[in-house]
């Protein structure tokens, strides 16, 4: 695997950085080199935030922000109206969105036409409310991301989630990731 760069779009408090960290930890357990960092700004609850993951077979030398991601993950569909989530996204890159509903409307919301990028969706908010009883979508979006691109093994991802969350919460998050993976589809 060459260097893969992922950009996470969320709102302050939704756990975009945590998702990035879990993905990085899982890839590291797989033996990959990783980096995970937020776009460091004032941490305000609800404001649009970014986080970045780099995954590579080779040691990662670069220490700048990510400008041309291979993949973007959108934790919150309300961001699509205000944030240009495709900025710098590589041609034919992947967009993974927490979304359920009409695909055409989604394409319009992102402002792209069919075939430009590979777009995957999963109903992360709904699943999070069902399983966690809270609208925390970050781990669900890791599941959807894995459907779009097999960045880590399941075993490593489970291990990373268990490291990050205490006991029962880990099990719930693993259930959520799996469900979000199952329901994720390209549109």
């Amino acid at each position: 695997m060459a260097l893969i760069e992922v950009r996470w779009h969320g709102r302050g408090g939704q756990g975009a950085w945590t998702a990035s960290n879990i993905l990085a930890m899982a890839a590291a357990i797989d033996g990959k080199h990783v980096q995970s960092f937020p776009a460091f700004g004032p941490e305000r609850s609800g404001a649009p935030v970014l986080a970045f993951t780099r995954i590579s077979e080779e040691p990662i030398e670069i220490h700048s922000m990510v400008y041309e991601p291979d993949i973007v993950v959108v934790l919150d569909p309300t961001l699509l109206k205000n944030v240009n989530v495709t900025q710098g996204l590589k041609k034919g890159g992947i967009i993974v969105v927490n979304y359920e509903g009409d695909a055409e409307k989604l394409y319009n919301n992102i402002g792209i036409s069919k075939g430009e990028y590979k777009v995957y969706i999963t109903p992360a908010t709904k699943l999070a409310l069902e399983i966690l009883k809270r609208p925390i979508t970050n781990t669900a979006m890791i599941g959807a991301l894995l459907k779009a691109s097999k960045l880590t093994s399941w075993g490593s991802l489970e291990e990373a989630i268990k490291k990050r969350f205490p006991g029962p919460l880990a099990e719930k998050n693993i259930e959520l990731v799996k469900k979000a993976y199952e329901l994720a589809r390209e549109v």
Partner: peptide, 12 residues
């Protein structure tokens, strides 16, 4: 160590 670029960046 560079603040944030290293202090807050997760690496293996």
């Amino acid at each position: 160590l560079d603040g944030f670029f290293l202090s807050h960046t997760l690496e293996n």
